[in-house]
Design a protein around this nucleic acid. Sequence first.
DNA 1: ATGCCGCATGACAGCGTTGTCATCGCGTGA
DNA 2: TCACGCGATGACAACGCTGTCATGCGGCAT
Lengths: 330, 330
Amino acid sequence: MQVAQLAGVSLKTASRALGGEPHIRPATRDQVLAAARELGYRRNTAASLLARGHHSDSFGLITGDLTNPFYSALAQGLEDEIRTEGLHLTVANSRESPELERSVAQSLADWQTKAVVVASAMPDHSSYAALQEHGIPVVFVDRAAQQIEADSVVFDNAGGGETAARHLLAGGHRRIAFIGDYTWLPTYQERLAGMAGAMDAAGIEGWRRWVRAGAHDVPSARAATAELLDGDDPPTAFFAGNNRAALGVIEELVGRSVDGGAPAVVGFDDFEGARALGVTVIANDPQEMGRRAGRLALDRLADRDLPVQTVTLPTTLVTRGSGERPPPRD
Amino acid sequence: MQVAQLAGVSLKTASRALGGEPHIRPATRDQVLAAARELGYRRNTAASLLARGHHSDSFGLITGDLTNPFYSALAQGLEDEIRTEGLHLTVANSRESPELERSVAQSLADWQTKAVVVASAMPDHSSYAALQEHGIPVVFVDRAAQQIEADSVVFDNAGGGETAARHLLAGGHRRIAFIGDYTWLPTYQERLAGMAGAMDAAGIEGWRRWVRAGAHDVPSARAATAELLDGDDPPTAFFAGNNRAALGVIEELVGRSVDGGAPAVVGFDDFEGARALGVTVIANDPQEMGRRAGRLALDRLADRDLPVQTVTLPTTLVTRGSGERPPPRD
DNA sequence: ATGCCGCATGACAGCGTTGTCATCGCGTGA
DNA sequence: TCACGCGATGACAACGCTGTCATGCGGCAT
């Protein structure tokens, strides 16, 4: 190593100085550091990791689309959390495709990330067991682990769904639509289940005729909204199952004036612009979700035998007007 | 290597099979791959990189805040681009702080990323020369390289600023405010300069009294907007210098009814919800920015001696109503 | 004054993989 | 049939760093 030569010390001593190890005289350390600075030395990660028997210094995050602010907030929270331990975050995109997710996960595994955090697009997560067997903690976010023993961080989807429906019911609505994401998503199922609890408890019948799914992006949510509004028996309120769906519903409503006043809208997930748009939402904190996931993974890295945990984060009703619009008088 | 043993071949042959190298009989390869699968073998990245003399398999991206959809879209575009070459993306957050940016860049350099893409919070980028000297391409995005020879990808900020101002002027506005980001940002300066060109050409005098800066987030933009509206001589139109500023202006306007009609608003950067809110914007494509930056870095990786390029991406005026509101009659 | 202890330092091996070069065997053309 | 060539395979070193262990030195207690 050139640095050691310039500093006039042995390789090992230089390594000690650069690595911040003890058992080195301050004067010697400074000498080495000065030499390193002068030569513009950068330690070779690969060699360092190899020698220490480690594999990687970064966590992998797999999401469906970083463009969705929900995921990017999650990524930010995760990054914040692991940076405290000097770790990096590598992001990968599954585009909500199970095949792509598998390949991306494989790739992260090949490159031996220290841990993987995933918002999975798969119904069955047993294939992640391979990673676990290699000592790579896997934490499932937003969508809980299925068919596998693994940590998860999720929102109280059922509770949020119930709160949303109750809120609309309390406002006098009876014809309440649900514009949900893909049906295979646990988040879809749980939010709908929560709504079902409230609707059934209120004695509403036949409400499922206003349930629509597949609203994973704005256009599809708009389309579903339009279809319902143009139907025989239009709903007086909408419960949008995610941030994209809420935007889609709102966009569609903005474009038309509905006889007897605009339908009420409650969205799941808070989103930028919801305040300006006056959209009532079931708010959650994806950034916190990222932080918690990071923490779980770090803890498991420190002690593999920790019991498996599922952390459920709360949701809060934030009223901003759209959810408080009354139904039109018949 | 266990795999080699199980497959009954030499270490090198196993390496060839796993690495997809030529000069290996298909039958032998399959045998090795089968053995690898059985043992759940994963190649050790660190060792592989070390042996090949490479350093890393990922690009680093430094932004101010992944939570800002502008940056996350950029990140997504960059990831899409480099994944085609089997590379990963590591994200890091500078929180728009030069000190943090320096430390984060240092850390990426220590861990030897293949290339760095940065939306820098620094006025002077000469410290990035150290990375370049180590053969790490550095590409500046959104904010062009300063005091350093490096590739950049930026938007046509001056053009966009001019277009925005012209649009409002054409609508009959004379008292036009600019709610800009931090003054030290080149994007601030260029957008304002573009506006200045249009204002001066139109013979408007004293318009700079409606220029405000520091609107890097929604609350500060709201505050600036409120201050202007509550002043003696409120503007009849706002040009918001970034997506957060636009949201702040809109939020503030939503909360009040201004005598003689709401002020017009044009924002810079398109944003989710702009359509629903009916906000006229100077739209740009951060995802494309990410892709182009990735391409520049990849190209430079292939040939260090490529001439330094600055790619300027276009902006487009998208009218949605807020920018077309006329000024109140005096 | 002597011996012991602990800290600073250095020599050396080894981390898991791939590049280099040598070897081997088989097929081809004369 | 023999020489030649080329593809398949293997032995071995090297990548740059850190862990282990040995060595040397000075201070402290007796």
